[in-house]
């Protein structure tokens, strides 16, 4: 039975990977060129460092993260509108289904009319991974990686790494219970140590390599994840608590595909440091 599990899941995972590893598919006369727009979005410098992963094959080990820039807030409706104006191929009526499912911008009132129920400065949501990438390209940026996101997400308001603080973990767990926050303007709370806003409690965010999160059917395939999370985990250390809060983010990443558009899933952009 175990091998069957593996087979079934491999198929699932392979097909999943394929979607995201392909470049934007060509189809008919749809324009896959992204036209640049000017963005005045404030970014913050994130200094290089390392963080202890709590998930996956490298679980428990330190992963190096290079210096990079990260948008201080998620991309907003207003910002996305300016992208659409220059890139009509990404409007709701013209986008390819392959690149964005039927939920794409479904809350907008028209191709160039922002949602009625959300603030112009609210995070843009109902955005596929492809769309998020196209936007990032138009402003000369890219999506952050999971490691980059998690590295910055470990910071509270006063320190780079708040993983060991129970109150920070509690704050993240609580943020899961907030509802409909994606309708509100960004910067609902104070910025974290890096000057980054809204990492928690507002929207989930696309990452460049989200599809690397795999739902496997058998935890025994992954010794570290299993033992780290379930056996040793019976002793509730703060690190375990931290893991606990992170589970939900990874569960979310594992549940989506690149063309999915979801009410509370948005994105922010990152940028390399040019030396």
């Amino acid at each position: 039975m175990r091998s069957l599990v593996t087979v079934i899941l491999s198929v699932l995972l392979l097909s999943c990977n394929k979607v995201t590893d392909t470049l934007i598919p060509q189809s008919g006369n749809w324009v896959d060129t992204v036209y640049p727009i000017v963005s005045e979005k404030k970014m913050q410098l994130i200094d290089a460092g390392s963080y202890k992963t709590f998930f996956g094959k490298d679980s428990g080990s330190f992963v190096q993260v290079k210096s990079f820039y990260l948008d201080e807030t998620p991309v907003t409706n207003k910002e996305y509108l300016s992208f659409l104006k220059k890139n009509p191929q990404w409007t709701r009526s013209q986008v390819l289904r392959l690149l964005a499912d039927t939920g794409y911008l479904h809350n907008w009132q028209g191709d160039y009319e922002m949602p009625a129920n959300a603030a112009p400065d609210a995070p843009v949501t109902n955005i596929s991974w492809y769309a998020a990438r196209a936007y990032a390209k138009s402003v000369g940026k890219r999506l952050p990686t999971i490691d980059e996101w998690e590295f910055v997400g470990a910071a509270d308001q006063v320190s780079k790494n708040a993983s060991d603080k129970p109150e920070f973990v509690d704050y993240i767990v609580k943020s899961l219970l907030k509802r409909m926050m994606y309708l509100k303007p960004v910067k609902q709370e104070a910025a974290n140590f890096y000057g980054i806003y809204d990492m928690y409690g507002m929207v989930w965010e696309w990452t460049e390599d989200f599809s690397a999160v795999m739902i496997t059917g058998d935890s025994r395939d992954d010794k570290n994840a299993n033992e780290g999370l379930f056996c040793a985990g019976s002793a509730a250390t703060t690190q375990d608590l931290k893991n606990y809060a992170a589970f939900a983010r990874f569960a979310m990443r594992g549940s989506v595909r690149a063309n999915y558009c979801i009410n509370n899933l948005g994105f922010r952009c990152a940028k390399n440091i040019v030396e």
């Binding site: 599990v5 094959k57 999160v213 795999m214 496997t216 059917g217 058998d218 994840a225």
Partner: peptide
Amino acid sequence: MKKQFFLSTLGF
């Protein structure tokens, strides 16, 4: 080489 994060549902 892409790093992969395994999320085990059965394990949970």
